[in-house]
């Protein structure tokens, strides 16, 4: 047997595809959360109300300054164990089993796994929302002041101007930095293992290295290649979109 076939046999014992799938779904849900929270934070940041601006600035700076690992560990140690925030209810379990196992629940402690999975989504979402907020804010800076003035002059309220005039143009001007944040998020989902997500690429990789140190280079290549394959389309997409959607002035 060649090294490669022996490795493939070894790899078949590990849920490599499921692990990647978990990271992809973590990206999708925490990315959506980050976009929503980031948009809210930016809207507050550009609002005419000083206290909202202050809250937003504080939120963004705090989350941006804390290392991701600390946020992710805190999701289990502080949020779950100390504050007793528990997502292991039926709805959360169904969501987790549906997304990760396509409805086929494995036997062991699904409730607990669902809880860690959701805590990881929230932690990743919170952390990256600060970067999304900064990315969108850089987009807001590409929108000339006259756009907001015209929106106000025509009788739109602040929220209407933000929603209809400023943010749509800001998003189009921020696709490249938002894309960079999403790419960072894809790779950062590997930190979900510290929140307790067990089936996940970095945890799976560690397990494989432990049991098959003779394959170490192949194991690294497997995971590196997997991420490259996931990230390349995102990069291509953001480049194309940022060119295609650019607002012509």
């Amino acid at each position: 047997m060649t090294l490669l076939t022996r490795y493939l046999e070894f790899m078949a014992n590990y849920p490599v595809f499921r692990a990647f799938w978990v990271n992809i779904t973590l990206t999708v849900f925490s990315g959506a959360l980050a976009l929503i929270l980031g948009t809210i934070a930016v809207t507050m940041r550009i609002s005419p109300i000083p206290s909202l601006r202050a809250v937003s600035t504080f939120y963004v700076n705090v989350l941006r300054d804390i290392p991701l690992t600390v946020v992710m560990v805190a999701m289990t140690t502080v949020v779950y164990f100390s504050l007793d925030v528990d997502f292991s209810g039926q709805l959360a379990t169904d969501f987790y089993v549906g997304v990760v196992y396509f409805g086929q629940a494995p036997e062991t402690s699904v409730g607990m796994m669902a809880n860690f999975y959701l805590l990881a989504i929230i932690g990743l979402g919170l952390y990256h929302s600060s970067f999304i907020a900064e990315a969108i804010r850089s987009g807001v800076n590409t929108v000339p002041l006259g756009q907001a003035e015209a929106a106000r002059a025509v009788g739109l309220t602040f929220l209407q101007s933000a929603r209809i005039v400023i943010l749509p143009q800001a998003f189009r001007g921020a696709i490249a930095p938002i894309g960079n944040t999403i790419i960072a998020l894809i790779k950062n989902t590997t930190v979900a293992s510290v929140t307790g997500v067990a089936v996940e690429t970095s945890a799976t990789m560690s397990g494989m290295i432990e049991m098959g140190p003779q394959f170490i280079i192949l194991i690294f290549l497997t995971f590196a290649l997997g991420y490259v394959i996931i990230v390349i389309p995102v990069g291509v997409l953001t480049t194309t979109l940022s060119r295609r959607l650019a607002v012509k002035r």
């Binding site: 006259g146 015209a150 106000r152 002059a153 025509v154 009788g155 005039v165 143009q169």
Partner: peptide, 17 residues
């Protein structure tokens, strides 16, 4: 009240998108 007052700017300021 602003809706009652039309404004035309030097730089047009049409909504670019």
């Amino acid at each position: 009240l602003r809706a009652e007052v039309g404004m035309v700017f030097q730089s047009f300021n049409l909504f670019a998108h």
